[in-house]
Amino acid sequence: MDNIIASIRKHFDVRDESLALMISGLKELNVPKKTMLIQPDRSDKNIYFVENGIARAYTIRDGKEVTSWFSKEGDLLYSTNSFHGPVPGYESETVQVLEDSLLYFMPIDQLEVLCRSHIDIANWMRYVQQKAFVEMERRLINRFYLSAEKRYEDFMANHAKLIQRVNLGYIASYLGISHVTLCALRK
């Protein structure tokens, strides 16, 4: 669990006792690449911690897959509808594992109990949610005000390692550009 622990410790000071308690509640899950971990027609009440591997979330819009986020080592994955309650627009959300991955998971309600009884875990989760919100808002602003070229440059500045690990079509979708445009920008 080195990547998970390192990610938590990198961004937030969670006490050793609280971290040990949270880790003791995690169960290991090996997931082969291309697995649809979370599907829109099934409720998934777990939160997943990525030790090794990568995944993406996407929804279907006008018959096309629209990638909304990527999770890699040290990140969390979960169903937006299960974690936050029913959220309009996420009815077709799918989480797909893109590489053979080692995940750890626990029920969301178990994490909520830990958050209520351990302020440091609650504050870490608040930090994780704030970070995700800021990233989404930054992407939204970039889509409104930056050209496709500038969005690609921003992606490379912040997520350069993903370009070797993720299908270019998924990255194009994430950036809100066509696959053809992305290929032209890469040249």
Rank of each mutant, 00 (worst) to 15 (best):
D154H: 08
F83M: 12
K161Q: 09
V95M: 06
D75Q: 14
K150E: 12
W124C: 05
F83D: 09
Y90R: 11
G85T: 12
L111G: 15
R61A: 02
L77I: 09
E65W: 00
C115H: 05
N123V: 04
V134W: 07
L102F: 00
G85H: 14
Y104C: 00
K72A: 09
N81I: 10
Y145W: 10
V128K: 15
K72S: 12
N158M: 10
M125Y: 11
F105W: 13
F144L: 11
W69Y: 10
K64V: 04
G85W: 11
F70V: 04
S101H: 01
T80Q: 07
S92F: 02
I108T: 15
F155S: 15
F70P: 05
E135R: 10
S71I: 05
R139W: 03
Y127M: 14
R151I: 01
V66S: 02
I108C: 15
S82L: 08
F133V: 04
A148H: 04
I108G: 09
K72I: 15
L77M: 10
I141A: 06
I141P: 01
Q130E: 14
G63I: 03
S82R: 09
S79L: 06
E65N: 00
S68W: 06
P88F: 05
M106R: 04
N142K: 05
E135S: 09
A148V: 06
D100L: 01
I121C: 03
N142P: 00
R116G: 03
G89P: 03
E112H: 12
F83P: 06
G89M: 05
E153V: 07
D109K: 12
G85K: 07
L114V: 01
D109Y: 14
S68N: 08
N158D: 14
G85F: 10
A160W: 12
D154P: 06
F144A: 15
M106Y: 04
G74Y: 05
I141M: 09
D154S: 15
P88E: 11
N81W: 01
S82N: 11
I60C: 00
W124I: 02
L77G: 08
C115E: 14
H159M: 06
L76K: 05
D120E: 02
R151V: 00
L103S: 00
P86S: 14
E149C: 00
K72T: 15
Y58R: 00
V134L: 13
K150M: 01
W69Q: 02
Y127E: 08
M106F: 08
E153S: 06
F70S: 07
S101V: 04
S82Q: 10
T67A: 01
W124K: 11
K72G: 08
E65R: 04
L76S: 10
R143E: 10
E99S: 09
V95S: 08
E137P: 09
K72F: 13
H84E: 07
M106E: 06
A148T: 08
H118E: 08
V87Q: 14
T59L: 01
F144S: 12
G89C: 08
R139T: 07
S92G: 01
G89K: 06
E93M: 01
S117H: 01
F144D: 10
